[in-house]
Amino acid sequence: MNAIRIIPRLDIKGPNLVKGIHLEGLRVLGKPEEFAKHYYEQGADELMYMDVVASLYGRNSLFDIISRTAKELFIPLTVGGGLRTIDDIKNVLRAGADKVSLNTAAIKDPQIIRQASLKFGCSTIVVAIEVIRQGDGRYFAFTDNGREDTGIEAISWARQAEELGAGEIVLTSVDREGTGTGFDIELIKKITEAVSVPVIAHGGAGNPAHIAAAIREGGASAVAVASTLHYGYAATATARDQTEGNTEFLKSGRTFSKIEPHSIREIKEYLANNSIDTRITDHTF
C-alpha cells in the first residue's frame, strides 16, 4: 500500500479562489497561490485546480496561476475545468500542470480519453465524474457543475473511462459537495469496486473522521478536500490580510455549521492515529 493522499482542491474563478455548495453559489476566499503555498508547506500530497467557469471567461489568469505554482511548488498539480480538446490539454500541461481532469469533453466524446492517454500517458489523464443520486438510488453523471444530467449511469461510466485509458478517477458527490455532511460512502464503494485505477473521493468532508471513512469504508486512494481546509486557512491572520473579495462571512467568524476547519497536518495526524498510512512531512521549507 502507498500513503493515502490528501489533495487540497482549489476552485478557481478568474484570479480568485472560490468555494460554493453543491458546486454553486460561489464565494471569493482569496488568492489561489497563497492558499496553495500554505498547503504545500503543510504537507499537501498533490494540488488540484478546477477552473469552475472556464467556458465563460478567458484563461490567461489560469495559465499564470498554473505557471507560478509549477515554478515554486514541487508536488503534482492536476488542472481541470473546460478542457475540450487535445490542444487544450497540451496547453495546460505546457503551462506546468502534471495531470489534467476531464469531465464534459469526455462525456461528449469518450474517445478523447483514449487519444489523450496515448499521447500524454495514462497517468496524466484523470476523469472527473460528478454524480447526483437519483430518487430510485441510482447514480447519474452530471456535467457543468452538476447542472446538466447526462443520463449516463456513473458506475458503468467509470468502468468505460478506465477501459479507455483514464489513469485515475476523481469522484464528486454533488449532493454532498460543500455541505460538510460526510462523503457518500456507498457511491465511493461502488466505484472503487468497479475499477482498478485509483479513486480520489471528493464532496462532503466536514471533519477528519469523514475522510477516514471514505478511505476505510469507501476504499478511496486519495481524498480531495476544499471547504474544511480553506475555511481553516482563511480564518488565520495571514490569509485575512492577503485576501481580497467577498470575505465578510469569514471575517464575521461564521462558517457552515457542519464544516469544521482543519489544517492538513491535523487531518493527517488524525488518520495516522487511526492506523491509516499517510505522509506527515518533517521537512522544513
Binding site: 502507498n2 500513503a3 493515502i4 493522499r5 500530497d45 495514462c122 497517468s123 489513469g167 485515475e168 482498478s196 485505477v197 485509483p198 486512494s221 486519495a222 505522509r279
Partner: peptide
C-alpha cells in the same frame, strides 16, 4: 485487487 497505476507517495 492491486490498483494500477500506482499513484502517490511511497
Amino acid at each position: 485487487k492491486i490498483r494500477v497505476p500506482q499513484i502517490g507517495w511511497n
